[in-house]
Design a protein around this nucleic acid. Structure first.
Length: 466
RNA sequence: GUCCCCAUCGUCUAGAGGCCUAGGACAUCAGCCUUUCACGCUGAAGACACGGGUUCGAUUCCCGUUGGGGACGCCA
């Protein structure tokens, strides 16, 4: 049997990080088994679903590199099929019409709650004769769920979980307006799409019981369930927008690489021995549901950042240049010319070694492409003032005729100058660094000078702040 | 409130009864490297929530307590 997994987001917002991980686990599981990973857009809530949200989710998945097979299934388009399933249940006496108004149900819940009882539908229309139906009220269709016994799900992550059927009420299948509810749609779609493994957030665990009842009523075999633990914020509470329940594109904008986020998310709630850094191909080879933990995990920006630093250091320089050019152009409010790009390309190895995110990378690369005069950080300004100013003037004179202009000879020059003046190398190098970059932090000085070239270096030495 | 789930360093985790003097990673601290910052390297500190069982022996199995989380919609 071919494994078929799915990711089924509702398009009411962006692809948040928890959803991204759910998609990732489904993708990994399918790949591990040589199966298929498909997408279904759960857009049956017409009031809240938007095409923008669909686009955001698809973009997020694409950016993360989670490719799905075929075209996404739009759930709303299958409403007629869902209704047909509910009607078939009605015919078989496995479902019934309920004429309660929403107000009546709210009152029922509040009354039960006040008594300290669980807020459930009491089944008042379950066995009532349809002839008692009130005039002008459109009924909903409810499943005639078993009232005794228990429902057990054999979850691939959580193990065997049992709930008493008395805890579950008769769920609504079809709304008064004839549209299907989520419970019905999910079951029908998962069945029709041939989904073999439903891997989703733990918050759906209780839904699995109701869905199991529905599968039984419909006479269908249930898929295997795997409810993965939720991701929490740094404070252990449910992940909110304040923490990191941001869209995937927010992580992209913060300068994270998709492979870093994939690696991090894979490791969150899943482990394979001591493995920490691995490709997605490797992860797919290793990925099993047995490796998924059962407790919720907190989202840790620092670890993601550290991982991102690793992937940044090992990335292709050319790719990183392309990634930061738009950021730099936005920063400088001007397009970069070929000369600027050449400097970035030459300087990238030294730059990427030091960056943690693409945002850092762009910031630290900016000095290579800024027009003069350079903006100076306070510390850098201090570093080129006073005695250092005179020193830089003297060095500039010597530098004008230094041959050759290579990092090796520049270093030899700086060492010789330092020795001749009774200074430490750092006392010569720091003022130069500050003068050439406007900062006290940069890639190796002589590498910078070589890349900048003699003319630019001298121009910078001549354009120091007052 | 009812039901369900969870529980190893600050965080993510390894651990499937003796291999545990509980391992790794991030973060933290100290040092080395060094023209700055990173990287890298070395070292330090740091956890089995608690209480009962079961067993010759429990981090590992069972029960309870406590703590955390989730679900209880004509939302998905």
């Amino acid at each position: 049997m071919t494994v078929v997994t799915r990711f089924a987001p509702s398009p009411t917002g962006f692809l948040h990080i928890g959803g991204a991980r759910t998609a990732l686990f489904n993708w990994l599981f399918a790949r591990h088994h040589g199966g298929r990973f498909v997408l279904r857009i759960e857009d049956t809530d017409r009031a809240r679903s938007t095409p923008e949200a669909v686009a955001a989710i698809l973009d997020g998945l694409a950016w993360l590199g989670l490719d799905w097979e075929g075209e996404p299934v739009y759930q709303f388009a299958r409403a007629a099929r869902h209704a047909e399933a509910a009607l078939s249940l009605l015919e078989k006496g496995l479902a019934y019409r309920c004429y309660c108004s929403p107000e009546e149900l709210t009152a029922m819940r509040e009354e039960l709650k006040a008594k300290g009882l669980p807020p459930r539908y009491d089944g008042r229309w379950r066995d009532r004769d349809p002839s008692e139906a009130p005039e002008g009220v459109a009924p909903v269709i409810r499943l005639k769920a078993p009232q005794s016994g228990e429902t057990v799900i054999d979850d691939l992550v959580q193990g065997s979980v049992t709930v008493a059927n008395s805890q579950l009420d008769d769920m609504i299948l079809l709304r008064a307006d004839g549209t299907p509810t989520y419970m019905l749609s999910v079951v029908v779609d998962d069945h029709d799409m041939g989904i073999t493994h439903v891997i989703r957030g733990d918050d759906h665990l209780t839904n699995a019981f109701r869905q199991t009842q529905l599968y039984r009523a419909l006479g269908w075999e249930t898929p295997r369930f795997a409810h993965i633990p939720l991701i929490h914020g740094p404070d252990g509470a449910k992940l909110s927008k304040r923490h990191g329940a941001l869209g995937a594109e927010a992580y992209r904008d913060m300068g994270f690489l998709p492979e870093a986020l994939r690696n991090y998310l894979t490791r969150l709630g899943w482990g394979h021995g001591d493995a920490e850094i691995f490709s997605s191909e490797q992860a797919a080879e290793w990925f099993t549901l047995e490796g998924v933990g059962r407790s919720p995990a907190r989202f840790d920006m620092q670890k993601l950042t550290a991982l991102n630093g690793h992937y940044l250091r090992t990335a292709e320089p050319a790719r990183l240049v392309e990634a930061i050019v738009p950021r730099l152009e936005a920063l400088l409010e001007a397009p970069l010319d070929a000369d600027a790009r050449a400097r970035l390309t030459a300087g990238m190895p030294g730059l990427q070694e030091r960056a943690k995110t693409l945002v850092d990378l762009a910031e630290s690369a900016a000095f290579y492409v800024r027009p003069l005069p350079l903006p100076f950080e306070p510390k850098a300004k201090t570093a080129v003032s006073g005695d250092a100013g005179a020193l830089l003037g003297a060095l500039a004179t010597e530098l004008a005729t230094l041959e050759p202009w290579t990092r090796e000879s520049l270093e030899a020059f700086a060492r010789a100058q330092a020795e001749a003046r009774g200074l430490k190398l750092g006392q010569v190098a720091q003022p130069l660094r500050a003068a050439l970059t406007g900062s006290t932090v940069s890639p190796p000085l002589f590498e910078i000078m070589e890349i900048l070239g003699r003319a630019e270096s001298l121009a910078r030495l001549a354009a120091l702040p007052a």
